[in-house]
Write a protein that binds this DNA or RNA. Structure first.
Lengths: 179, 179
DNA sequence: AGCAGGTGTTTTATCTGTAAACGACTGCGT
DNA sequence: ACGCAGTCGTTTACAGATAAAACACCTGCT
C-alpha cells in the first residue's frame, strides 16, 4: 500500500492520526479514511509547529499574527495599506486595525495618510520595527531548522515539494471558487 | 497562464509561500529559508483545508471543535471523562466544559457521575448524537476526498507518508520535551 | 453640481479559547 | 482518624478573532 519495498518500518504507524484512523476502522470498517490521513496530519503538524514557533516570538513580546504583519512590511520593502496587510497576512481588516493600533503604540510601525485618497493610510516600519524583525528572523529560522532536523534533508525537500504541489493546486482551485 | 510551455510546471513555484520566500530573498539574500518552505506551507494548507472542512459542518450546526469532541466519543466506542476528551481533542479542560454544556443542552451527549470518585464525570453519546456523527462523517469524508482530488493517488499516498514521518517524529521529540 | 454606488477603514457586538483561581474530592502517610 | 498533597472539573476574567454595520471618502453618471 504505502511503502513500495525495501524499508520495513512504516513511519505513518507511529503518530496520533494513525491511531485515530485505526479507531475509526474498528467502528466503521468500510470507511474510506484516506483523506483523514492527509488532512488530519496537516492540521496536527500545523498545531505542533505553531506551538513550537511561538516560543521565540513570545520572548520578543510579539504574537505570531503581529510578527506576520511586521514581516509582510519587511519583506515587501515598501509601505502597505491596511487592506494590503489584510490580504498579505490572510486576516480580516478588523484584525489588522487592532494590531496596527498596538504596534503603532509600541513604536514599531508608523502611519501616513494618503494625500490623494484620504480614506487610505500607508503603513511602514520604523527603524525600531525593522531592527526587531531583522533580529528575530534569523533566530526564528534557526529554531525552525532545529525542529525540522528530525527529518533528513532529502525528506525535507520531498515534503516541501509535495506540500507545494498541494498548496499550489489548492490555492488555484479554491481561489477560483471564491472569485 | 502557468507554465510557458514545454516544461511541466514546477508546482512549488506557484503557491503563495514561494512568493513570500522570493520576497525574503531579495531583502535578505543570504537567508536560509528552507524551514519556511515546509512550515509556511503546512500552516497555509491547514488554514485552507480547515476553511473547506467547515462548510459541511456548519450545515449540520456544529463547529469543528464540537465535531471533534463527538467524534472522539464515537470512535472510541465507550464513555470518556472530560479530562479524556481534553487530551483526545488537544484542547483545554475549560473548553471541554463549555462544549459539553452546549452539547448536553442539545441532547447530543449525556453525563453520568462516577460512583467511586465523585469528582469525575463520564460522558457518552446519546442516540441522537451517534446518529448525527454517523450522518455527517461520510459526507465530510466525501467532501474531503473531493478537495484532495487535485492530487493524483500516488501524490496523496506519498504526501500522507511524508507527513506521517514528520508528525511521528515531532510528537516523539516534542512530546519528550513536555514530559 | 449633485447623487448613487462602490471602496477602504474603523467600530461595535458577540463569541470562543485560555489561564488562573477555585471548590470538591480522593488517598496516602502519620 | 486526621491532615495534607495532588487531581478533576468548573468558574471567572480577560485577551483575541469575526461578522455586521457604520463611517468617510472617492468616482462616474446625469
Amino acid at each position: 500500500m504505502t511503502a513500495p519495498n525495501g524499508r520495513p518500518a512504516d513511519p505513518t504507524r507511529h503518530d496520533t492520526v494513525a491511531a485515530v484512523v485505526r479507531q475509526w476502522h474498528t467502528v466503521h470498517p468500510g470507511l474510506d479514511t484516506g483523506p483523514m490521513e492527509i488532512i488530519g496530519r496537516v492540521n496536527r503538524c500545523a498545531a505542533l509547529l505553531q506551538q513550537a514557533e511561538d516560543a521565540p516570538l513570545r520572548r520578543a513580546g510579539l504574537s505570531r499574527p503581529e510578527f506576520d504583519l511586521l514581516g509582510a512590511l519587511r519583506r515587501t520593502g515598501h509601505e502597505l495599506t491596511p487592506g494590503d496587510l489584510a490580504r498579505e497576512t490572510f486576516s480580516s481588516g478588523a484584525a489588522v486595525t487592532k494590531r496596527l493600533k498596538q504596534l503603532t503604540e509600541r513604536g514599531l510601525v508608523e502611519r501616513r495618510g494618503d494625500t490623494r485618497d484620504r480614506r487610505v493610510a500607508h503603513v511602514r516600519l520604523t527603524d525600531a520595527g525593522r531592527e526587531l524583525v531583522d533580529g528575530i528572523l534569523p533566530e526564528q529560522l534557526e529554531y525552525e531548522t532545529a525542529v525540522l532536523s528530525v527529518l533528513t534533508p532529502e525528506a525535507r525537500d520531498e515534503l516541501a515539494a509535495r506540500l507545494g504541489e498541494l498548496l499550489g493546486r489548492l490555492e488555484g482551485s479554491l481561489g477560483m471558487l471564491r472569485a
